[in-house]
């Protein structure tokens, strides 16, 4: 599956782009996180990594589809 990932904050620096095409066999949010950490070991150094699917925080067992809006959410720091 080929997913389009929106990146923010430090994840943009690590992946090197605002919107990154990411191909992998898995189709769950948890698999995406593990695959990201495997391919970009720097991701493991973050305090947390959440994934948002279609504008809402997603759990690890959520199944993602290619047309979903998927975003990487590193630790937030607004305010």
């Amino acid at each position: 599956m080929k997913y389009s990932l929106k990146t923010f904050g430090i994840t943009r620096d690590i992946l090197g782009g605002k919107e990154v095409i990411f191909e992998m066999d898995g189709e769950k949010v948890g698999e995406l996180k593990l695959e990201l950490m495997a391919r970009f070991p720097e991701m493991k150094s973050l305090n947390s990594l959440l994934v948002a699917v279609n504008n809402a925080y997603a759990k690890d067992d959520m199944v993602i589809k290619e047309k979903d809006e998927i975003a990487l959410i590193p630790p937030v720091s607004g305010g």
């Binding site: 904050g9 975003a71 590193p74 937030v76 720091s77 607004g78 305010g79």
Partner: peptide
């Protein structure tokens, strides 16, 4: 808002 809103600062 600080804990949940996807907003970041550098």
């Amino acid at each position: 808002v600080k804990a949940k809103a996807p907003i970041w600062k550098k």
